[in-house]
Amino acid sequence: MVSRFYNVLIFMALALAPLAGLAEANLEINTPAIASLKQSMQSRHAQLVEHYNSGAVGLTRDGMVAVRDANAVPLAQRQAVNALVSAENQDRAALYREIARANNHPEWESKIRATFGQRWVNLARSGWWYQADGSVWKQK
């Protein structure tokens, strides 16, 4: 079961690699819900990249994103960035839940979430911010 868990995880991480700006992989998970979530995240990624680059938004340890430094965003745009982060986190939470469900192991959700947290950081571009141990923000 453990090896299958990691197979699924690697499979998914590769499938979602384009979201982190890497070369596009051909692998996909073919459940309609996951495909829909992936599409939603991909379409939002272009908007999030500039905020990852500026340090306004960072990657958290639990596989989510967070507004790290709103001062990097003009005041009038902070509400939109906030909404962007909120929508991304809703997709991510649903994605982890769906991967667990699709593999008939809902109990994997927390494991998937934690391991994805590390995976997103590995896939992050240089200069992006992530939460290290103790929830301290570090720049990659």
């Binding site: 507004v67 430094d69 709103a70 001062n71 005041l75 902070r78 906030n82």
Partner: peptide, 11 residues
Amino acid sequence: FSDAAGMHAGE
């Protein structure tokens, strides 16, 4: 005004 995180600010 602003807090450290910029989540409560006015200009």
